[in-house]
């Protein structure tokens, strides 16, 4: 099958000061099949949000390619780019800041259709239809964002991402700002919509439980680099990159018996800003299994099993 989205050697550097560069996304390649959910995990500052923005062409890339359904996204401009935007949408982390506080929900939902000239004259009808789909009714059209709870507003955020009948959605930490009891509602909604409408998601999250639940495949990002990518079961069942292993070991399970008996698996140190990182593996400083070669040479992405790859010298 040809992938719906293909990212090839994508780089996104930000200049810092006179001579330094912050390598937010550093040579990332991945692909997503139509109807697939790719989870993207990593800690704050690993570049996962930037990657999502660059794929959507909301931020320019430094180099590399993003191919969406055969279209070279990064070369598009003006009208062509606007046209492509119908097909790729985004759901943000904080529902309150992702809505214009001075626009009613009705206006916010009609806006994308008006910009794209879709459902002309029937914008409101379509908005109500989508609101119903996400579990709300048409009575909210005249309300303002501040009148809703976070969970309700995030549902509306999902409805907005569907206004243009898009088939690819970047969900950027869409449940991390929500209360625990609301998270599960919204996650179920994401899953239902994906199955019903055969949507393709790039689902960004720092929460491994969330990612495991929603994803078909998972990519782990560390300091702008892809550390490991594998089908969900393999990644959680047989993590191969030491970073993935540490990440999984650090997860706290809601089970006191398990937690109290668990030996401390905390790894040292913290992710630092990837400003002019030294050569070699980005995880070298914190890696419990580091070897001499890791300090001098970047590990290549190695295939470990079917669709399972990791960037680690242990497996090279």
């Amino acid at each position: 099958m040809t992938p719906l989205l293909e990212v090839r050697n994508l780089h996104k550097y930000y200049p810092v000061g006179r001579n330094s560069r912050l390598k937010a996304v550093d040579d990332v390649s991945l692909s997503i099949q139509p109807g697939e959910v790719l989870g993207l995990v990593g800690e704050s500052g690993c570049g996962k949000t930037t990657l999502g923005r660059v794929i959507l062409s909301l931020q320019p890339a430094t180099s590399g390619e993003v191919v969406f359904d055969g279209i070279d996204v990064l070369s598009l401009q003006g009208k062509d780019l606007r046209r492509l935007r119908r097909r790729m949408q985004i759901v943000f982390q904080d529902p309150y800041s992702s809505f214009n506080p001075r626009m009613t929900i009705g206006a916010a939902l009609s806006f994308p259709m008006k910009v794209q000239g879709m459902h002309r004259g029937n914008e409101e009808e379509r908005a109500v239809e989508l609101l119903n789909r996400v579990g709300l009714d048409g009575s909210v059209l005249n309300r303002y964002p501040h009148e809703f709870s976070g969970g309700q507003l995030q549902r509306i955020g999902i409805a907005r991402a569907l206004t243009l009948d898009s088939d690819f959605i970047v969900a950027d930490e869409p449940v991390s700002a929500l209360d625990v009891s609301i998270q599960s509602q919204v996650l179920n909604l994401f899953k239902d919509l994906q199955e019903e409408l055969n949507l393709t998601y790039l689902f960004i999250s720092h929460d491994l439980g969330v990612v495991e639940f929603i994803s078909d495949r998972v990519a782990v990002l560390y300091m702008g680099r892809l550390a490991e990518i594998a089908p969900t079961e393999d990644l959680f069942g047989d993590p191969r990159h030491p970073y993935t292993q540490s990440l999984l070991a650090a997860v706290l399970h809601p089970d006191p018996t398990l937690e109290k008996s668990k030996p401390s698996m905390a790894i040292e140190g913290e992710i630092s800003t990837p400003i002019d990182p030294p050569p070699g593996c980005r995880f070298y400083g914190r890696c419990p299994k580091r070897m001499d070669i890791c300090r001098v040479q970047d590990p290549p992405m190695v295939s470990i099993g079917p669709r399972h790859s990791a960037a680690c010298w242990l497996h090279a």
Binding site: R82, R85, S98, N100
Partner: peptide, 11 residues
């Protein structure tokens, strides 16, 4: 982010 959302729909 609402500005980014508007850009994402092509405004």
């Amino acid at each position: 982010e609402f500005v980014e959302a508007a850009r994402a729909v092509g405004a």
